[in-house]
Nucleic acid binder design. Structure first.
Length: 413
RNA sequence: GCGGUGGUAGUUCAGUUGGUUAGAAUACCGCCCUGUCACGGCGGGGGUCGCGAGUUCGAGUCUCGUCCACCGCGCCA
């Protein structure tokens, strides 16, 4: 029935009789000629219904509204001079319709496709409409490609794909289990797996050696913008291996997945120790797309005139005083923004947020008066301060300082 | 569980200090329009202002309660 997808056609198709099927993306009724942008999974093409060409098709076309489902038979024609649409992949051609069938009519749309401001609740309510959008289809396609690439790569490395049960016994980890009542065992419940670890030992001791699964995981915890209660995890397990083996498999896997999605990445990845990551970035999954490394300055406060800072500087193992220089930050951050950053870090246990501004006329900030001239000079060179910079300071026990300074780092980035 | 923000037309939003008949864009309906591609022109319909109380001569607007949504914290590897 259908002979082509919309974007299969191009200038080479001119003159061909084709049958297309799809949805009305938009229509323009000029009273005489009617234009229809027809959409299928491949993209758009313009249909033309001119009463001079075919009166019957034009009459059908005059009833058309957005999102009607059509089957259109017609001939591919090159568009005239100046009538081309460079924004369309098929913009140099159009299809002159000589037989138009309305397969299905559509109610008016409850929301505008492609409008990025439409709330997610309404999009989910009309999921079948939402999924018509190209971006939605591309997302599914990307996911499919990633999953297939992961399977192929792991298969090539000798991993066996397994599936483990969903209805299982609760294995108390950190997260709450989702529970499913059992009909057979009255009053008892199955738990849905938080992750598929439960069956690891069973397979490993049985000598399966290497296996993986692309597994659904369930955690009955509150959501975040980037966190769902139900998600998919690639679980890879291997026997008789060391850290290096595990990292190599992970790198190969990520390379294969990114490659399948059209991105080249370099392996091996750069590696830093846990300690270095915590000291410079304040967490164990640092965002390395920007610098903004925190710098240790605890030694400079050792004999300073502030009892609070001096006290903290006494215990170098447990405490930290970290400086975070934001180049050009003095100009970029208004008083108000700095206030907001202060209350931002306060949420994570910061007692305050000291800072030093680097002005034309010199350094400015309330903590300068506590520091010796020597310490200030050392600070200048250690942080390589330039006019226009701002430096934030976090002081206290190391876990707290790492946490809020690390969060501050990504917040200001 | 806690905090912040929001809820007004199908959708996205505006609505002044509490004051006449609650607006715009888009969508929808009707008429007109033969080269548009976000087509255009004219006209029209469409509202439990989340819900419930309260203050007031008068509430979309103020107060309290409640429900829902989003964002964050707690929680969550």
């Amino acid at each position: 029935m259908r002979t082509h997808y919309c974007t299969d056609l191009d200038e080479k198709s001119v003159g061909e009789e084709v049958t297309l099927a799809g949805w009305v993306n938009s229509y323009r009724d000029h009273g005489g000629v009617i234009f229809i942008d027809l959409r299928d999974k491949s993209g758009l093409i313009q249909l033309v219904c001119d009463p001079a060409d075919n009166e019957k098709a034009h009459k059908v076309a005059s009833e058309i509204r957005d999102e009607f489902v059509l089957i259109a038979k017609g001939k591919v024609r090159k568009r005239g001079e100046g009538l081309e649409n460079p924004r369309l992949k098929t913009g140099k051609i159009e299809v002159v319709v000589d037989d138009l069938k309305i397969e299905n009519r559509s109610e008016p749309m409850p929301f505008t496709l492609g409008d990025p401001n439409v709330g997610e609740d309404i999009r989910l309510k009309y999921r079948y409409l939402d999924l018509r959008q190209k971006e939605m289809f591309e997302t599914f396609k990307l996911r499919s490609k990633a999953a297939i690439a992961a399977r192929n790569l792991l298969d090539s490395l000798g991993f066996l794909e397994v599936e483990t049960p969903i209805l299982t016994k609760s294995t108390p980890e950190g997260a709450r289990d989702y529970l499913v009542p059992s009909r057979v065992h009255n009053g008892e419940f199955y738990a849905l797996p938080q992750s598929p670890q439960l069956f690891k030992q069973l397979l490993m001791v049985s000598g399966f050696d290497r296996y993986f699964q692309i597994a659904k995981c369930f955690r009955d915890e509150d959501l975040r913008a980037d966190r769902q209660p139900e998600f998919t995890q690639i679980d890879v397990e291997m026997s008789f291996c060391d850290q290096e083996d595990v990292m190599r498999v992970a790198e190969e896997l990520l390379k294969a997945i990114f490659n399948a999605c059209g991105r080249e990445i370099e392996i091996p990845f750069s590696r830093i120790t846990y300690k270095e990551s915590m000291e410079k970035y304040g967490n164990d999954r640092p965002d390395l797309r920007f610098g903004l490394e925190m710098v240790d300055v605890i030694d400079l406060f050792e004999n300073c005139d502030s009892p609070i800072f001096a006290e903290i500087a006494q215990y170098k193992k447990l405490n930290r005083i970290k400086a975070l220089k934001v180049p050009g930050g003095d100009k970029a951050f208004s008083r108000k923004i700095i206030k907001e950053l202060e209350s931002f870090v306060a949420k994570f246990g910061a007692k305050g947020l000291a800072y030093i501004q680097v002005k034309e006329e010199g350094l400015k900030g309330p903590i300068l008066k506590f520091l010796s001239d020597d310490a200030i000079e050392t600070m200048k060179s250690r942080l390589d301060l330039q006019v226009g910079d701002i430096v934030f300071f976090g002081a206290g026990d190391r876990k707290t300082v790492w946490d809020y300074m690390g969060r501050l780092r990504t917040e200001v980035a």
